[in-house]
């Protein structure tokens, strides 16, 4: 245990000037983490494991707009939670920093994508895990390329994709880098083998035939929702996760929360019926954390304007932070269980 660390954040507010006021977070950052400029040296110095990046980019989407409000809502929802996880006896305090939002030029998607790419490279250079919150799914194209270039062609990466849609359009209306092209571009990365790609949650007919054909051509393993329900949600999810971590040096986990049933996450750009329930996703998040290592996490397509009572944003926060907590648990980073609030009050 680090005696220099304060433990007040583990407990209900103590009152007085020392106690955090739960409803007055001062500056809105991911999990009330400190803001650190997007600079490799500064990030390294912070000692954190995760660097949060907001990506308010909505110019790769083909349907309902609104995902550029995603990062704001995600940060806001994260204020509702403590860094302490009773289920794992884990404290995430100090494990994350917030690098703010990637600056967006608007109406110049190529410039925006380049900035996303450079932001991810910078965080990876510092040895931190970027947590990107978008923004539409096309951000994953730039971010996976950043990871791929970062590790170099000699190393291997794995890619885990959650979503109701396969996003395997080789092109869409002649464009190659839109959200529906995400998985098509990602599976072209030189150090990502098809055997290390998994797609979870495909269903319904926003999956045109060329996407299915491309999946077959490239041997991309996707587990449709129907297969998950028939073969067992957890068994199939574990299989999908294992593929991504098998003999890979880096792992990229990408969420579009339309993988959830529309009822569990209404605040996404394209809701789909017949998806995962939140109780199922919580356990899947834990399975990911139990792998002890993850290199990049992204969340795309959060669409707060359609959300109800913060449902989707809170789910997204819980999934990301649960991965962080389970990962810490798997690495044996449990805190001293004997710490009590009364000790602080006495001191």
């Amino acid at each position: 245990m680090n005696p220099a660390k304060s433990y007040a954040h583990l407990f209900s507010p103590l009152g007085g000037d020392a106690g955090d006021n739960y409803r007055a977070p001062n500056v809105l950052t991911f999990l009330r983490s400190p803001y650190v400029a997007l600079n490799a040296q500064a990030l390294k110095k912070s000692g954190a494991r995760y660097a949060f990046l907001g990506v308010p980019f909505d110019e790769g989407n083909i349907g309902k707009p609104g995902s550029e409000e995603g990062p704001r809502e995600f940060r806001l929802a994260s204020q509702e939670y403590f860094t302490y996880w009773f289920e794992y006896n884990i404290d995430l305090y100090g494990t994350a920093v917030d690098c703010g939002d990637v600056s967006m030029p608007k109406v110049s998607p190529d410039v925006a994508r380049d900035r996303i790419y450079r932001a991810v490279r910078e965080v990876l250079k510092a040895g931190l895990v970027p947590i990107l919150v978008g923004g539409d799914r096309s951000l994953s194209i730039a971010a996976t390329k950043a990871l791929s270039d970062h590790i170099g062609v000699e190393k291997k990466m794995g890619y885990l994709h959650f979503g109701a849609h396969l996003d395997l359009a080789d092109s869409w209306a002649g464009e190659k880098n839109l959200a529906p092209c995400a998985l098509a571009r990602i599976t072209e990365l030189p150090n990502l083998a098809a055997t290390n790609v998994s797609h979870i949650g495909a269903r319904n007919s926003m999956n045109p035939k060329d996407w299915i054909d491309l999946a077959k051509d490239r041997n991309i393993r996707f587990i449709p929702m129907r297969e998950m329900l028939k073969e067992g949600v957890y068994e199939t999810a574990q299989g999908a996760i294992d593929r991504v971590w098998k003999n890979t040096d880096a792992q990229y986990v990408s969420f579009n929360f339309n993988v959830m049933d529309a009822s569990a996450a209404p605040g996404v750009t394209s809701t789909e019926p017949g998806g995962l329930e939140s109780r199922e996703m919580m356990r899947i998040a834990e399975m990911i954390g139990m792998k002890k290592i993850v290199t990049v996490i992204d969340v795309s397509e959060l669409c707060p304007v359609f959300d109800v009572s913060g449902t989707a944003a809170r789910l997204a926060v819980c999934v990301v932070t649960r991965i962080m907590a389970a990962l810490a648990k798997a690495r044996g980073e449990e805190i001293d269980a004997s710490i009590r609030r009364s000790d602080l009050m006495a001191g």
């Binding site: 309902k64 319904n204 007919s205 529309a262 009822s263 209404p266 605040g267 996404v268 809701t271 789909e272 019926p273 017949g274 669409c303 359609f306 959300d307 109800v308």
Partner: peptide
């Protein structure tokens, strides 16, 4: 409705039937 979920559910009742 909320976030198109009901109309999309209704569409899928019919689409999955037809499929």
């Amino acid at each position: 409705d909320v976030s198109h979920m009901s109309i999309k559910m209704a569409a899928n009742m019919i689409y999955h039937y037809l499929g």
